[in-house]
Design a protein around this nucleic acid. Sequence first.
RNA 1: AGUUCCAUGGUGUAAUGGUAGCACAACUGAUUUUGGUUCAGUUAGUCUUGGUUCGAAUCCAGGUGGAACUACCA
Length: 555
Amino acid sequence: MTEEKSLNFIEEIIEKDLAEGTTGGRVQTRFPPEPNGYLHIGHAKSICLNFGLAKKYNGQCNLRFDDTNPSTEETEYVESIKEDVKWLGFQWANELYASNYFDQLYAFATQLIQKGLAYVDDSTSEEIAATKGSTFEPGKNSPYRDRNVDENLRLFEEMKDGKYKDGEKVLRAKVDMAHPNLLLRDPVIYRIKHAHHHRTGDKWCIYPMYDFAHGQSDSIEKITHSICTLEFIHHRPLYDWFIEQLEIYPSHQYEFARLNMTYTVMSKRKLLQLVNEGQVTGWNDPRMPTISGMRRRGYTADAIRQFCETIGVAKRENMIDVGLLEFCVRESLNKSANRVMAVLDPVKLVLTNYPEGQTEELELDNNPEDPNGGTRIVPFSREMWIEREDFMENPAKKFFRLGPGLMVRLKGAYIIKCDDFKKDENGNITEIHCSYLPESKSGNDTSGINVKGTIHWVSVPHAKVAEVRLYDRLFKVEDPSSEEGDFKEYINPNSVEVLSTVYIEPALANTKPGDRFQFLRKGYFATDLDSTSEKLVFNKTVGLKDTWAKEAKKG
RNA sequence: AGUUCCAUGGUGUAAUGGUAGCACAACUGAUUUUGGUUCAGUUAGUCUUGGUUCGAAUCCAGGUGGAACUACCA
């Protein structure tokens, strides 16, 4: 039985449009980032939506850079955005820029002036704000509102020709200064900016505002469904007004609720602050909710896509538990990541009855979830590194690991029994002595003994050293943006912990940045960009579910 | 205050006038050479008041609560 997946509200609109033929049977979407920052997981939601819809309905999705503000936009951002979209697994039909349309947009503005629907205003930005009115008070007409068409045409051309300084004049649409929607109170549609543009260079010194660029760009590209986030809902009447006055292709805008996630922030302005103020190491810091940060941390594109699918699309404000993202990445990595052994917090274990100098090569499965995952060789010897937390001097009840007299299995090797241990003057365990059961070897265990615990290990003489970076949430509170004061006061001071001496099995010696593993019993880890063959560096992507930690916490 | 949008378990999201379901989280138990995975199960929800209707989460009206808007940013 194939259960029918229910449609989200945008899919319903599209299916209705398709059924009624309102868009001529076409679905054309676009993903319209402004190149003034790196993409984050919230953008991923929009990307999956826009590209996903195009794919589902045999349409196309454009990548369009909304580059109408030269003072904040840079080529570096354009490149990172393209890389991130591709990495997420999507291919755009056309790579476009709002700046491609500057000539057309200028012509549109001229048309509006000719229709008596736009005028050049000499007011300062403060004056315009002051006469805007408020939610309970209508605005006042500008003294320049009734300039005649010819004068407006001349002045606008002079603006374009660089006759005026920044801020000296603007072009405004003539709508209604008493409109209840503040955005329709004669919005500014062109402003003067003597700034170098990353694409058009110094060709222009006037630039269209968002409202005078976005809808028209959609229309030029014959976008059928222009999907954006809720905060643009008030812009829709303006979007429609320009299209109607200009008599151009009627694209339509639909709004959905943006993604919010616990323990992070999702505004480019705030993320930029973290970068600029050195709170993180860069846009791709593994603690950042950016696509590049998550990629570096070890997230798979597949996990992010699955996450976006799972959270759904609706119009109500939401706050997604970051735990859901972690679930998606575990689910993805559980299937794909090879298992290896790494000891993060080492303590030495000596097998007192194992011959000195002897070495065995054990063959272990790479991935029990993947029948075709293959095997690898892991060396075994008399001395082992094991995890400090896998030994308790006075074992708690239900502690199925090592302690005086207790038995465990060394993963893929032998069952061992703890006979003795050594402590230093501070009471720290320095060495654990065990005897192994030769007849309990993995694969042909004839000992007849069943132990409840299995622990991971790395042979001391064969171990490689690596640096491991452990990450915790970037913020201490669920919603830093809604707290009192500056959001940066809520940064988690312990969001990263660097372990400089982690012992890993030799099979990891040739790992390359981007490789992903499960460190057995610890979590998923990815080889960092900083990793070299001389110095291996791993990032913790996410831990395994740890029901023992939960049990231990209960006391 | 005005306008617009929204309201379903702890968190998300379905049910489109006809049995309130799914995922995550939480909690039991089984399996397990990862205290992982897998499997079985449990807890828990329609903001409120009226109306329409044989029947309302759904339609209507009023309340309540939340969000957004008052940049020469997008």
